[in-house]
Amino acid sequence: MRVEQIAVFLENKSGRLAEITATLATAGINIRALSVADTSDFGILRLIVDDVEQAKQVLKDGGFTVGITNVIAVEVDDRSGGLASVLKTIDHAEINVEYMYAFVNNSGENAVLIFRFDDMDRAIAALQGDRFSLLSGEQICSL
């Protein structure tokens, strides 16, 4: 149960984020979730979009460095302790979080947590073992 995420290299200069989002908008691609990791020298933009293949193609054509990574999307109730319960499972299984970000879906009832772990297979097993709801790419896009 993995979700494909687009990652784009961002050089540290003004206007790059705007160019990427404009490129995606022109192609009619919808961004479901995103995060930016930044250092003093460069940034990495991570996106969950409704059409991964097309997004990758248009960004590559636009001259960006693009990679596709697998992440895990966990749906939790949008209430206090939602994230904590997921991390408790991960901690017990001695798995490390490489990065994460989150968004709340339209209905406002559920939150979706996007994770990259150092051991994705064991993370999936652990989360499923504790009966967490993992979403597929299609499910995220239809939220």
Binding site: A7, F9, A37, T39, I44, T65, G67, T69, Y99, R116
Partner: peptide, 15 residues
């Protein structure tokens, strides 16, 4: 220049 081959979505790898 960061090639696709070089690129990682993890800051740590690039650093």
């Amino acid at each position: 220049e960061v090639s696709e081959q070089l690129f990682s979505d993890e800051v740590r790898q690039l650093e």
